[in-house]
Each structure stands twice: as C-alpha cells, then as structure tokens.
Amino acid sequence: MEAIKFSYTVPGDDFTRAGDASTDLKSKLKKMGVTGAPLRNISISLYEGEINLAIHAGGGEITALVYPEKVELYLDDNGPGIADISLALQEGYSSATEEIRSLGFGAGMGLPNMKKYADEFHIESEVGKGTHIKMVVNL
C-alpha cells in the first residue's frame, strides 16, 4: 500500500515558527483518525527533531510517510553535523547557547526523547555535511 506523504521546510533560527510542522502534522493525522499515545509519540519526537533543525542545523527538511500501520519521519539537514553522536545522545548533553537556553531549550533531552518516544530511531551524521534522522512510530 502506498504511503501518504507530507513535506515541510523548517527555517533556521526562527524559533517562533519552530513547531509549526509538528503541529500541522498532528492535526492532519488526527483528521486521518490517529489518536492517543501514537499521536503523542509522533508529535513529541517530530517536535524535538524540528527544534533541533532550527537551532542546531540552520534549518532543514522534514518528510512524513503515513502508512496504515506506522508513520515514518525523516529529518534531513545540511548543517554542521554531530562529531560525537553517542555524546549527543546522552541525557543532559547540549551545546545550546545562553540565548537559546533562555527560551527554554538546551536541557539536552531532545535526542533522548526522540529515542524514547519513537519505536525506531536511526541517526547518521557527518561533520561539515549534515545530519539525517529516521524515526518510525507504530500506529
């Protein structure tokens, strides 16, 4: 069965709009009958990824593929990349600046939350090239 596809472009450094893609996908999924824990799991993991695109990567692309039994989320950016992925995945690790922290970000919980709320989480990153994340949430 063919997936239904939604695509979003996340601007870099515009934190007032960060969250728009997750909010939009949430309302579309809701209309398609997705509810409860799966809907929250998708919303939370996508939001964390979306914020990271805006804060750490200078923006990027989101693709969501909706299947009857699962949703696949792809986050792709051409940002600075992550040198030490296992460090970045640790709860509490953050490179966020003071200014960003004052907005409530920088707990170092974004990537751990993505891992926790998604049923599958894959990350690939190359310094100077960018970061690619794939998440799967079962419906």
Binding site: G19, S22, T23, S43, I51, L103, F105
Partner: peptide
C-alpha cells in the same frame, strides 16, 4: 513563550 505552548499542545 510560544514554544511552551507548542509543548503543551503536542504533549
């Protein structure tokens, strides 16, 4: 801020 509202909504 607006991001806090997004968290409340999405969660």
């Amino acid at each position: 801020n607006i991001n806090a509202v997004a968290v409340a909504a999405l969660h």
